[in-house]
Amino acid sequence: MNTIKLYLHSMAILIKSQMQYPVSFLLQTIAQLIMEGGEFLAVLLIVDRFDILGRWMPGDLYFFFGMMSVSFYLTECFGRGVTGNFPMLVRTGQLDTMLLRPRGVLTQVLCSAIDPRRITCIAVGVLALILGSRMSMIQWTVWKVLAFAEALLMSMLLILGLFLIEAVFCIYSVKSVELVNALTYGGRSACQYPVDIYPRPLRAMFTMLAPFAMTLHVPAAWILGKPLYGWPTWTVFVCLLSGLVVFGVVYVLFGHALRHYRSTGS
């Protein structure tokens, strides 16, 4: 409870700081809109030219895109401390300051940043979701809503976990931004389309290593009424948990890394 209060209080302060530069904020928000709008435009243009992708109809593609977009940018918005620039926290000594306070380090990292500019990206994602749901005529039930909510939550945990890998490497002073980007941004680019269109190695990568297929595609495909690989319904709710697993594993590694942290500078 106390932690949530702290998080909300921190967010209030951060938003207050960002509003000190309103023009910059507005411009950056528009920039985000162009970016995500451009990504969505690419999907629209692909649909315009190709109509279908394997067994997936345009509505299905918009729905997949929307789920990825919403979960990715919700994570970027609220998990900015992790997804933003963790190496900077180390370089500027902010991590030292966090270690000096009687709170969990990850809590403080999450409390250290928020990115409300992503709201426009999330809006684009929501638009895609509505469009996809309409076009694919999804019959929403309580279970589907539940699966949808859980899928978003687990995907967020997964994305946060993947970004946290960079933090772990960074603490061991290994430069790995690009490698981790292959998993995070690569995962986003790849898995905004259903995983079954990809050849085996990529499918393996996004099922085992960065299991977007588990947290996003299995439930989304089931919601669309076209279960992935024809798996039974119960798998939907189990596969989802892989997001929690990835986050848990990386979180343990993160704690371990902190004990080997070598603070630089005086």
């Binding site: 106390n2 209060k5 702290l6 209080h9 921190s10 302060i13 207050k16 700081s17 960002q18 000190q20 500027t92 000594g93 030292d96 300051t97 000096l100 306070r101 009687p102 709170r103 403080q108």
Partner: peptide
Amino acid sequence: RSQLWWDVPILDSYLLLRDIY
């Protein structure tokens, strides 16, 4: 090195420290 929040009044920082501690 500063441990307070750069862009907000220092009282806000102290309020946040109250919650942190």
